[in-house]
Design a protein around this nucleic acid. Structure first.
Lengths: 130, 130
DNA sequence: CTATCATTTCGATAACCGTTGAAGCGTTGT
DNA sequence: ACAACGCTTCAACGGTTATCGAAATGATAG
């Protein structure tokens, strides 16, 4: 993923309404949601929503398709993954130090279910090679 | 990680100079870099750099410490991880669909070394529970 | 204690961003 | 063909942000 693309993705997500939209679509999965449904769910005016959807689309974070007279938007998961990869790239320099960069490279335990010990570095961490 | 914190982190990173600074510090690891060294490495004026370092510090993405007459800045890896976790939270709704959200939850193969098949969903993916 | 060095703060300017109401465009149903 | 509907585009405004030179701060070294 190129720096320019990452920058526009971060720029797009750095706005509360757009972050809400994106997260809503991430949680909605590939089925996505109609523009009107998003507007209602988040309580924003159609004009404002359209503006933000354009921004997110231009940042290539979401994708549009037509269904009847509605426009359905859904998250672009590949792009989202590329973003994370870019930030963690070459983390902790070389040689890598598992003790410090492990949290970045390994999925967070709190996102799965309960909090656990984060220090079980038994398996290598694929993202940065720690 | 709270939405407000995520928002200010994204906002801080959505600016080219700050993204450069942060990535430089991510790659520098816990040792960090002096403000002057960062300014030289990125070719920005001291005043401008200081402004951006303040922004990143206020977003809690980086941390400051003193060493001799220099101020050393380093990335806050916990915060970075929290950011990623927040974006992927509850991805693809319930029930989760591994086929579509796997790329988000699993570390990207391109960041490790060479590109591989991304579809080997043999083990469960901890971040979103797919 | 003074000089020097690294970094920050100040003040001002120009560019960018988010929001809104009104108007426009394409699609559906009668 | 016409009216209703969903959504987007337009034009304009108020607020925020990035950048710079100059001056101030804080810490070290001699």
């Amino acid at each position: 993923m190129e720096k320019k693309a990452v920058l526009s993705a971060l720029s797009a997500l750095s706005q509360e309404t757009r972050l809400d939209i994106f997260r809503l679509l991430v949680q909605a999965g590939p089925e996505g949601r109609a523009a009107g449904a998003i507007a209602e769910a988040l309580g924003v005016s159609p004009a404002t929503l359209s503006f933000h959807l354009t921004q997110l689309t231009h940042a290539e974070l979401i994708v549009q398709r037509r269904e009847g007279r509605s426009l359905i938007y859904s998250a672009d998961f590949d792009q989202m993954n590329g973003l994370v990869g870019f930030l963690a790239e070459n983390c902790c320099g070389r040689p890598a130090n598992p003790a410090t960069c492990a949290p970045v490279c390994a999925p967070s335990p709190e996102a799965a279910n309960g909090p656990e010990k984060a220090g079980n570095a038994t398996t290598p961490l694929p993202r940065c090679g720690c």
